[in-house]
Amino acid sequence: MKTSLKVKIGKLTLKNPVMTASGTFGYGVEFEGLAGIKELGAIVTKTITLRARAGNRPPRVIETPSGMLNSIGLENPGVDRFIKDKMPSLRRFKIPIVASIAGESAAEYKRLAGKLDGVKEIEAVEINISCPNIETSKLFAQSEKSTKDIVEAVRSATGKTIITKLSPNVTDITSIARAAESAGSHALSLINTLTAMAVDIEKKESMLGNITGGLSGPAVKPVALAMVWKVYNAVKIPVIGMGGIMDWRDAVEFILCGSTAVNVGTANFVNPNAGAEIAEGIKKYLRKKKIKDINDIIGGLRK
């Protein structure tokens, strides 16, 4: 029996639904030799900004029960150096590249999308409006209006597939999801990390230099699944699910809750080959269940 793992996200076709999550796979090269990169559906890059960012004060990572906090603060070399220094190696993998972008205003997102529009191998742009580790008091992803403005600005600057990455730190994620959809986003990805803390009681200080950070890993999976399920039922565009996916079973849970594709994040730190193994595991699951096409089970949770 032939089993198809092919999925479509906007204009982008993925040979399988497994992508690496932004910020957890660097620019791919760091994992060369340890990860089956060619086996991945796509790579999502670390979030890129217009100008280089140094990132937040260390310590930037700390483990918590079945999870971790990070407060990296979008350290990146800026879009021009990204294109010049990071794209050549990313190209070599010959798999679709999704460029994650973040700006301080809709105009900045637009300029970023414009600069990346000319880079052929970048097949989609992920709009990160949900990073909890930057200076602003309110995330763009916490406002329907900001979400809409940014998606529209990006749309006006690029013909590439647009994915909008949502934050779990909201009262109603479906309203933000609909705002992004109505503004023309081709897909939604969720969840970004949950704002979180850990405290050193001896020193009476936060374990993170930036005081707060974002929680990821197995601890967030149940929260992420519920959000994916809610958003899947609220919009018509594809949903890319993530949050604590460690193995293929977790990935199948997300697919059943409505994820067309999944992102693997924290798991890359535990097993650098997690993405490729998850893709293989999903395939075996489909075969065992005699399912010909993965698209037949997306959102297939029995009600």
């Binding site: 760091e30 260390p58 650098p272």
Partner: peptide
């Protein structure tokens, strides 16, 4: 020493301050 996640240079979690930045 600094706390690490990936250990591979990808996550930028283990930086320390140096004369030429993190």
């Amino acid at each position: 020493e600094e706390r690490m996640a990936c250990g591979l240079g990808a996550c930028l979690g283990c930086v320390i301050d140096t004369q030429s930045g993190y």
